[in-house]
Write a protein that binds this DNA or RNA. Structure first.
Lengths: 197, 197, 197, 197
DNA sequence: CTTTAATCGAGACGGTACGTCCCGTCTTTTA
DNA sequence: TAAAAGACGGGACGTACCGTCTCGATTAAAG
């Protein structure tokens, strides 16, 4: 006898929102490791079962809270195409550096990373809802640049996006150095130099 | 009345080894999240207090176990200088790709990453004992190449090592694609193209 | 705004029966302590609210189920008056012993007892619907015997019924010994000996 | 792999006492049904696991608390043998009636009864530690009376003790009437009348 | 070569959180 | 408007581990 799935139609929107808000607040206050489901439930004024009914894990709740915030605030996904590739990519890399450098983001971002790289289900969701779209718009812009001759006609776009985002992420995660606009620009230059022919 | 520090001279080598071995086995079996101090103690045939006496946290034990293994197996830290920069870097990037692609390493590596990026103390130790030495020998090889004119005289070596390792790490953590020798070579080509002028 | 009482006229007889049947089955299967309202509702194919609407407590449901069964099967309440007091009482005590000795009754009977002696409301209902009628017909038969001179004219009938039923109940509840016809007869002899003059 | 039993030698007497005291207080305050293990642990200043380690159930804790109190206060088990059977038994039955009539005992006693008649393991312990000793000293006194000719030489002593205690217990449990010395005396008279010839 | 002090295996302890079960209430939909 | 269904806030369950704390029993240096 299998456990019957809950009916999403009857889900309480009020509870869902309260849980995500409480989770976001708490993860910022105490960090992910010290975060407990009980505390989320208490803060949200919700029964624990309501959380367990709709989310498979603590990580999933926090991740969902993060997604909800990201998707509200988004707009970063429209990478412009002004014809100037360097300028367009700079418009993405600089804000990315700013976000990673923001001390308020650091805790949450690291917690999220730890969860995502550790839980395959979360990774999948992260890919689908955040990472892949970002990489795809970037690739799309590069494709356009390739057609217009700004970069080499045989440029490997998958590699290119990894060259754009990988080093910065690597620097951030390991605390290798400052993440300012100067760094973003130098990184961008280096990558474009590689792509140009 | 202050708690007196334990005396390392009296430390039982047998216990230390047993703990590290048990930790390594268990993290491979159940993953880091489900790993418990009690299980390590039981598997090692050791009292819990013995673990608490010598390590500050579960993460520290696992990390120590990982270090012990790494330092035994190491030798990767002698990056050759044959005069052919591409060949020398290939001798590092290909084995790195191999390790990341090894399914047996995946769990442990991800667990370690999650801990390290989340716990500042562990990150510091990781930097000092593993990452910084690796980056430094790489920078050193690049410095030598800069002097010999293989790469541009104003090449930014800090950025260069991030360009070498960041994209591969990014691809691995997010599962963006296969990590084979072809990939390592393409990545290396791209980076060298950027550094050459 | 007061909560309006449910209208018994609109009550579903089908649901009522299903609940009582399910409760009787489940109490026999898992015992009273492990019995839950949710399980009764599920087994009966009934909403939980339907149970809460018509019964004040789990005990009340089970008790009602027991009553429904008892009242169907009853007939024991017509204590004969053949003029032979010993024979007439034997006709009550022997079946009572049989019922208490029935292993199928044991669990249910003990659960019922535990509830009844613990919940004043249930005790009242138990007295009114089962116990008092039984004691009263017994007292009535003794009254008739007193008038016919079979027992002492000053016999205390309240005490007499307690002497008839108390020892057997005591033996059953505490498992002090077998409850067979021989025991019922010896008990009856002892009590009659006391009552005779 | 079986769960290894705890070592009684290392048991904390302080915790044991605190738990029993807390249980006794709480069962008097809120009754058995509303009593929770968590509340006992909290009141006793003890971890829940400490309770679960040493007692199999809530009933067992409360029962143990009751036993501890009973065995401290006991002394009722020395039934005198003055040669006057009626007087000696009166010395037991009257205090028994007093205890059952005590409103402070009622809740606890009913809760205890409910548990004991419902849980075979508790019943066994109740029999061994409280009931059987009481019945045996009573039987012993009756045996002595039988030898001295005060009661019939073929008196059934098992039945006799049930006649002495059963009716009073029956009256108490079902609230059939007052439990005063007059009642105790009338009951005793009736039983002795039955035993005499 | 003892003595003595620290470490060791073991595991009970006071706690915290877990994930589950069930409570009794409330809401939605169906008949 | 009662009923079936089941989500909800809540409380307690019994379990798993946490990190601390005794307990003897080694064990290795200092006397």
């Amino acid at each position: 006898m299998t456990r019957s799935a809950p009916d999403p139609a009857r889900r309480s929107e009020r509870s869902r929102t309260a849980v995500l808000t409480a989770a976001a607040e708490l993860v910022a206050e105490v960090g992910f490791a010290r975060l407990t489901i009980e505390a989320i439930a208490a803060r949200a004024g919700v029964g624990k079962q309501t959380i367990y009914r709709w989310w498979p894990s603590k990580g999933a709740v926090v991740f969902d809270a993060f997604l909800a915030a990201s998707e509200n605030a988004s707009g970063s996904l429209d990478l412009p195409d002004t014809g100037d590739l360097a300028a367009d990519l700079r418009a993405v890399l600089r804000p990315t550096a700013d976000e990673l450098a923001d001390p308020g983001f650091d805790n949450t971002g690291r917690a999220l990373t730890a969860e995502v790289v550790t839980d395959p289900a979360l990774l999948r969701e992260y890919r689908e809802r955040l990472l892949d779209p970002l990489l795809e718009v970037t690739r799309e812009r590069l494709r356009s640049a390739r057609e217009s001759g700004e970069i080499a006609p045989d440029a490997d776009l998958d590699l290119a996006v990894e060259l754009l985002y990988g080093p910065m992420y690597y620097r951030w995660l390991h605390g290798l150095g400052p993440l300012d606009h100067g760094y973003a620009d130098r990184l961008l230059d280096a990558v474009l130099r590689s792509l140009r022919t």
